[in-house]
Amino acid sequence: MKLVDIETVEPGQILGKTIFSSNGAILLSTGVHLTVYMISTLKRLGVTTIYIDDPMFRDISHEELLSEETKRAVIHQMSETFEQLRSGKNFSSKAIGQTIDDLLEDVMQNQNIMIHLSDIRTADNAMFLHAMNVCMMASLVGLNMGLNMLQLKELAMGALLHDIGKLGAPEVQEGRMHHSWRGFDLLKNKREYSLLIAHVAFQHHEAIDGSGAPRGLTGDDIHTYAKITAVANIYDNLIYPSGDQAPLMPHEACERLNAYSGTLLDHEVLVHFMRIVSIYPNGISVRLSTRQTGVVVGQHRGLPGRPVVRIIDKEGEEAVGYSELDLAQHPTVFIDTVLT
């Protein structure tokens, strides 16, 4: 499959990746033939890019850290949890715990897969996909940093619920009204949870240099769980920003994160994060320094900037074949531009 701009999609093209609704149900399934109405609806829902099933790239391996079943369960559970809180009810710690167990099982089974955030967001599911992605990325980083299972569960729980204080929060968030405070106050009263889980919500906007919120903590005063969650949170927000901010491509987001090393973000955590993230995800179109264009079709763990690129050979407008260039084997060739 191939990632394309929604504005270039034409009726009859085949959807390459499932799109979820806000409650975890399937909005559109992989393999559906897109209609004018479907394309129009996706645009109305705020979708900007989708994966299309392209015959030239049908064999591309697109491994996922989480199974579709786990994703549906996480999104559904977060939808239920947020709805319970909006209604003034208590949320189920047991249900959240089971969701975390399922997510961590997937992460541990697939820990050699590089992360790429490929699930399509809509205005309705964005909050829940954000929570899921931050949890997924934080868990994999924690695993690579050698955290034990108890620590991974605490980290994953805190990362999944890191923004829980945003529910009902005012637009201007200062002092005790900052959503980090609100999340801490909510989670610290859950007797089933370690207080460290509440501190993830409390500290994920703190910065190593003391410029963060809500308390201006520095360095070692910030818990490791919060440092890990902060990296995952900022990365996801750079890829899928809210408001009028322009989204960054994965390689641009990674460059931004590295610029924050030692100031906003912890350097050691960033080193581990960069080892597990796919800078140029499979399915993305690129232009090489040779001026050739192609689509990324393969990855090298530990060499995220040197993927395998499939270059389409054409006669006029017709594709007649392809060749593949492994950038790990051609050090003088590099990706010049990511195309959309």
Rank of each mutant, 00 (worst) to 15 (best):
residue 290 T to P: 04
residue 59 D to P: 03
residue 212 G to W: 01
residue 5 D to I: 01
residue 3 L to N: 11
residue 163 D to W: 02
residue 5 D to C: 14
residue 46 G to K: 00
residue 177 M to H: 05
residue 45 L to M: 15
residue 177 M to K: 09
residue 229 T to S: 08
residue 328 A to D: 04
residue 135 C to D: 06
residue 94 K to F: 14
residue 179 H to V: 12
residue 271 V to Y: 07
residue 268 E to C: 06
residue 190 K to C: 12
residue 271 V to W: 07
residue 52 I to E: 07
residue 337 T to A: 13
residue 311 I to E: 05
residue 117 L to F: 07
residue 35 T to Y: 04
residue 101 D to N: 09
residue 70 T to E: 04
residue 279 I to Y: 11
residue 211 S to N: 12
residue 234 I to S: 06
residue 123 A to M: 08
residue 246 A to I: 01
residue 200 V to R: 03
residue 47 V to F: 08
residue 70 T to N: 06
residue 147 L to D: 12
residue 319 A to V: 12
residue 19 I to C: 13
residue 308 V to L: 15
residue 86 R to T: 09
residue 127 M to K: 09
residue 251 H to N: 09
residue 295 V to E: 04
residue 221 D to E: 14
residue 180 S to I: 00
residue 236 D to S: 01
residue 233 N to F: 00
residue 232 A to N: 03
residue 94 K to Y: 14
residue 2 K to N: 08
residue 56 M to W: 06
residue 75 I to F: 01
residue 225 Y to R: 10
residue 244 D to A: 14
residue 145 M to T: 00
residue 2 K to I: 06
residue 150 L to A: 03
residue 321 G to I: 01
residue 285 S to A: 11
residue 41 T to V: 05
residue 225 Y to A: 01
residue 242 S to T: 11
residue 133 N to P: 00
residue 196 L to F: 06
residue 257 L to C: 04
residue 279 I to K: 13
residue 20 F to Y: 15
residue 192 E to V: 05
residue 279 I to F: 07
residue 152 L to W: 01
residue 166 K to I: 03
residue 155 L to S: 06
residue 46 G to T: 00
residue 37 Y to F: 09
residue 63 E to W: 07
residue 14 I to D: 08
residue 139 S to L: 06
residue 55 P to N: 14
residue 94 K to G: 05
residue 111 Q to G: 02
residue 190 K to E: 10
residue 30 T to I: 15
residue 108 M to V: 04
residue 165 G to W: 01
residue 181 W to E: 10
residue 46 G to Q: 00
residue 92 S to Y: 02
residue 293 T to F: 03
